[in-house]
Amino acid sequence: MTIFPPRNLSAPGAALPSEESGHSPWSDAWARLRKNRLAVAGGIVVVVLAVLCAAGPIFSQSYEEQNLDLGASSPSLAHWLGTDTLGRDLLARVLYGGRISILVGLVATVVALVIGVTYGAVAGFVGGKADTVMMRVVDILYALPFTIFVILLMVFFGRNIFLLFFAIGAVEWLTMARIVRGQVLSIKRMEFIEAARALGYGRRRIIFRHIIPNILGPIIVYTTLTIPAVMLLEAFLSFLGLGVQPPMSSWGVLIKDGADKMEEYWWLLVFPGTAFSLTLFSLNFLGDGLRDALDVRASKD
């Protein structure tokens, strides 16, 4: 039996809705986000880059058409960002590479998200010994040189792009699991969960229908911040020759290529590097802005 009406739980610290206009916590967060100019700029840049990369290759020149007579030419009107040593248009290659980089970023993040949220929610909800053991496993995995294992996996099992998704996702889920567990612990004693239990709902339904929707804020924030981390790891692997393989190409591959040839052809390094850094900047600003807007505090336990 509860005396108090259920509180507004979706965004901790959100302003109470006023009677007349009825702001939802999400619209409050949206208003706060819009005031943060850096975050808005970051969001716009991300969207523009994603659209360019998704649609650009349809309109641009072919990314694989070679023009050996042309060779590596500096930026010009015909080829805005110049061409590489095989005479391929660099703008088309950067756009096409961006497609792969962003795709890896999104898919691997989804993998990390699914593993991390499920693991963290189960650990937090079940509690007790299971929780202790599960979080101890996470602690131990945290302390391991995981990048080394991703490198070994990629070397031994062939450089397959699907393996890349899972290898990266398998590394990045740890932080998500910790955050989700902390959030679950903080809400699982609240009345509405008790009510769900009293209605006879099963654990699975309570976790996925009642708990997770109420901790979406932190999940969204850390997803936004996981995407740049994933893209960094992909580029790191590609730079070592372990990531995306030709004829496919990603920003990491292009940067590696440019770094090898930068003495003569600086544009091969500078443009892919700029595109990559710009994306990371925008995603990080957007993530920080979302964190402030949704008022999420970094919780460690």
Binding site: L232, A259, L269
Partner: peptide, 22 residues
């Protein structure tokens, strides 16, 4: 600090080489 986070080593390294070595 944000610049440091968003310009990874494999971009910064070659650029430093280009600028200060070559």
């Amino acid at each position: 600090a944000m610049t440091g986070i968003c310009v990874p080593t494999f971009v910064l390294g070659p650029i430093l080489v280009l600028a200060f070595a070559i």
